[in-house]
């Protein structure tokens, strides 16, 4: 904060236009206590000229958040509603003489609150953003993120976090954010609004290890039955993703003709659903022995699973896997192959 511009410090220490308005013409708000920053803004508008004659704010948040809200009220007082609706995140930042990179969301919050107030004034139903929610920790939806990326020309995931807090918590949405940013940037390049050299490209995802003999033959037919047989107690070391264990145990379950026919018809997502349901039914037995198993993905007729807990490094892991495979075939009637991955 004390590295911020004098103007930011001044607006934080002596915020202007704090409070509520009696009989405001419109009110708007953005953010919540859970988000960590929240802003309420109220405006008075001259109905004839459309000029904003007064504005007040209340803010919950860090110092910059308070300063940005204070600055916003100064910016809009004296402007018409139309002029105010054109105020961008960047204008708030410029007015304050710049903001630290990781505080950009404060300007975004001011902009959002102002937009809801203007929509309220115009009697517009602020249509709730019903697009996909991407981040678990912070409530930001896809359409909102896309707009922020476009208007501020963001080209790195770190910037997206700084402007919206998204992915600034548990980080489990890191990948979807990278993909969204890359897609939006690609569109912007196509539209000629972004220099191709600056556009963001999502890092290439490592392809799961899969030796040649497990590659499908292209048309979705079952692989040739030449899988390695390791069910006789050879260990599968932890950390080494090794495909193993085509079942070699006697009396194994056989895929039924009906199963085969049904299997061929299923769409990929339906295959995943059927297999993951079957695995979920098996998990309690594995958990009872301190292990666990989760489905990673289904490709063609191969189910990639991840073993954990006691299963890891267990000498019997390959036997467990053959068992899982057998049960899956029994339950689904499909010619499935189970391959462990890390």
């Amino acid at each position: 904060m004390w590295q911020c511009s004098d103007k930011v410090q001044d607006h934080f220490l002596n915020p202007r236009n704090v409070g509520a308005l009696e009989q405001p013409d419109a009110e708007g708000q953005a953010g919540t206590i859970a988000y960590g920053d929240a802003l309420k803004i109220a405006i008075k508008v001259n109905r004839d000229s459309g000029v904003i004659t007064d504005a007040r704010f209340k803010s919950f948040g860090c110092g910059v958040s308070i300063a940005a809200a204070s600055a916003l009220t100064e910016i809009i007082i004296g402007r018409t509603i139309d002029e105010a609706s054109a105020v961008s995140d960047a204008e708030i930042v410029d007015y304050l003489g710049g903001l630290p990179e990781d505080k950009m969301y404060c300007a975004v919050l001011g902009h959002e609150a102002l937009q809801t107030a203007i929509a309220h004034y115009r009697g517009e139903n602020d249509a709730a953003d019903s697009s996909e929610r991407i981040c678990k920790c912070f409530p930001a939806r896809k359409a909102f993120l896309e707009r922020i990326i476009r208007t501020n020309k963001l080209t790195s995931p770190g910037q997206v976090t700084n402007y919206t807090k998204v992915s600034g918590g548990c980080q489990s949405c890191k990948r979807p954010i990278e993909e969204l940013l890359a897609a939006v940037n690609a569109d912007m390049v196509e539209e000629g609004v972004l220099d191709a050299a600056k556009a963001y490209h999502a890092p290439v995802k490592a392809t799961p290890f899969m030796p040649a003999k497990f590659q499908m033959n292209g048309n979705g037919a079952p692989p040739r039955p030449n899988g390695v047989t390791e069910a006789n107690g050879k260990s599968i070391g932890p950390g080494v993703p090794r495909p193993n264990a085509a079942p070699s145990v006697g009396g194994e379950a056989q895929p039924t003709p009906q199963g085969l026919a049904a299997f061929a018809k299923l769409k990929p997502e339906e295959r995943i659903e059927v297999v993951s349901k079957a695995i979920d039914e098996l998990r309690p037995y594995l958990k009872a022995d301190g292990g666990d198993c989760e489905l990673v993905e289904v490709k063609e007729n191969t189910a990639f699973v991840k073993l954990s807990g006691a299963c890891m490094g267990c000498q019997m892991a390959s036997v467990t896997l053959s068992g899982v495979q057998q049960r899956l075939i029994e339950k689904t009637g499909m010619p499935l192959r189970v391959v462990p991955v890390q």
């Binding site: 004390w2 934080f12 206590i33 919950f60 860090c62």
Partner: peptide, 10 residues
């Protein structure tokens, strides 16, 4: 309640 720590610290 109701206020944010960073502004208190500042």
């Amino acid at each position: 309640d109701y206020i944010e720590s960073e502004s208190i610290l500042l």
